[in-house]
Amino acid sequence: MLFKYIRLYIEFFKQNIKIMLEYRADFIIGAMASLFMQMSGIFFVWVIFKNVTTLQGWTFYDITLVYGLLMLSKSLNHIFFDNLWVLGPQYIRQGNFDTLLLRPISPLFHLIANRLQQDGIGNFLLGLVITVKSLYELNLNLGIKGVALIILFVVSGGAIFAAINLITATSSFWVVNSYHLIWTVYSVNEFALYPLNIYHKAIGIILTWVIPYAFASFYPANYFIHKGYEQLSFISPIVALVLWVIALRVWRFGIKNYTSTGS
């Protein structure tokens, strides 16, 4: 069963690459646009550090490591789970969700596999550059174990992003246009671009226990730079798993509420 889905995903993936090649200009513009948007964020951090040397004990490269890890996680979600954003407007509102329900495969899998978002690729590359540069400047020798852990953290982070989007997107089954809800919850991730210590405690609690984006950046970064939260860094994969279990429950409940359209 699992193998069938992996095989199928590869087939969908190939088709999506073909679509991307159909729209080459779109691909380049999209990748560049999101790249510039992210650059401005890192530029902002750079400006701050022109004036100070540390921020609550964090150096410039400590912070860019947090920043880079979040970008990597976020871009994985952006590339592979982007269709969740349009579940309401494109699939439910127009009744196209019907077509997903007519295939002998999981409709959720079908929904996600249907789209590959090229715009995320630029972010992924930028995130990779920032992360690698930060690790290099911090003189951290990772070794194979370290690299494997980084991959595990980033994948977990991506899964956390996707699960949270899945939960908010599922509200489309009731409210049809769920865009505002998805966007509001998603925007909270902007806080996770920087270390939690710089904020009020309440924000730290929210980002850890309510909308746990911090497990995609702050806690994993702590594993490498030792600022006192090392133990929590290993929870990232568990948080991702728990969130997915919840998200799938919510999804299953939501799909029962699907009422299709009039024709």
């Binding site: 088709q15 679509i19 159909e22 729209y23 127009q94 019907d98 077509t99 007519l102 002998p104 999981s106």
Partner: peptide, 21 residues
């Protein structure tokens, strides 16, 4: 899944094909 594997459907108002391919 069991049911869908033995049926086919056309809904005149919408397409089941990939729009760009």
């Amino acid at each position: 899944v069991k049911n869908n594997s033995i049926i086919g459907a056309v809904f005149g108002q919408r397409t089941q094909m990939w729009w760009d391919l």
